[in-house]
Amino acid sequence: MSDTKILTLIEAVTAALDHEMGLDKEIVLMGEDVGKNGGVFRATDGLQQKYGDERVMDTPLAEAMIAGLSVGMAAQGMKPVPEIQFMGFVFPAFNQIATAAARMRNRTRGRLTMPITFRMPYGGGIHAPEHHSESTEALFAHIPGLRVLIPSNPTRAYGLLLASLRSPDPILFLEPKRVYRMVKHEVEMNGVALPLDKCFVDREGDDITLISWGAMMHETLLAADQLAKDGVSVEVIDVATVAPMDMETIFTSVRKTGRCVVVQEAPRAGGLGSEIAAEIAEHELMSLIAPIGRVAGYDTIMPYAKMEMQYMPSVERVVEEAQKVLKYV
């Protein structure tokens, strides 16, 4: 008996945190302005009032400390949920995430686990430069011992965050800030988590596979709509759990369509799109009818204001790339 709520992505984040905090006292939130102010994007709105400042803690602007304390807390069985205000501010904490959180299970042979969910708004969409807008998920996806999740819509934000809060592994939960209030979903408030290691096939088709994650799922789905108008049967995959990545779902789709395009907001070189393309080339070369297409941000620094939309892959670019791949014989 669960009710349904119409939620934005950010409201879904709040709802998942609220749900799990109500069940598990070991979950505490910490970060810059997450308490009294409810977070700069209001992800933790109302939670301090509800759970008290012992469980929803404002911290100073000190990311290395936020991550470091989280590791220590997790070592004692707590489940901290640190918020890094913008993903671009994560670098002072990079050391603790990469060299402590990600490795503690291995070093201790599983005696210590790191049930930490590092939440952070990520990607472009607010016309701010660099660290407020960049997509650096590949840096973290490269690190063994970490999971990296990127929900593309409110339903997935709710289900994946629940899964994340229940997982004993350290997780980077990247919230595409452009989608925070872009769409609303009817989300069942049933407390059911989504799987942590499974891609979502959002649309089934036979002619071509479009693969994306995060905010770019919206451009990708719009591109699929346009292609469908021309009679193309498009399969769309939301990777969502970008590390570790469920390649099997992607291979299955490529075996069916023989053509694919990977769409990412991050710069092109060395991104996750490169990894997906390499995996497909390595394992499914004979299934391919055409070379793998890639649409990505440019290999440049995330620009400011108006130039942002020039950087971002557009629906047109996705359609164009898909048509190129479709034409190949």
Binding site: A64, M65, L69, A75, M78
Partner: peptide, 16 residues
């Protein structure tokens, strides 16, 4: 880097 970790351990002691 162990100093914030140990401080987190202290936090957990207090919290518990």
């Amino acid at each position: 880097a162990q100093v914030p970790l140990g401080t987190g351990v202290a936090f957990a002691n207090k919290y518990k």
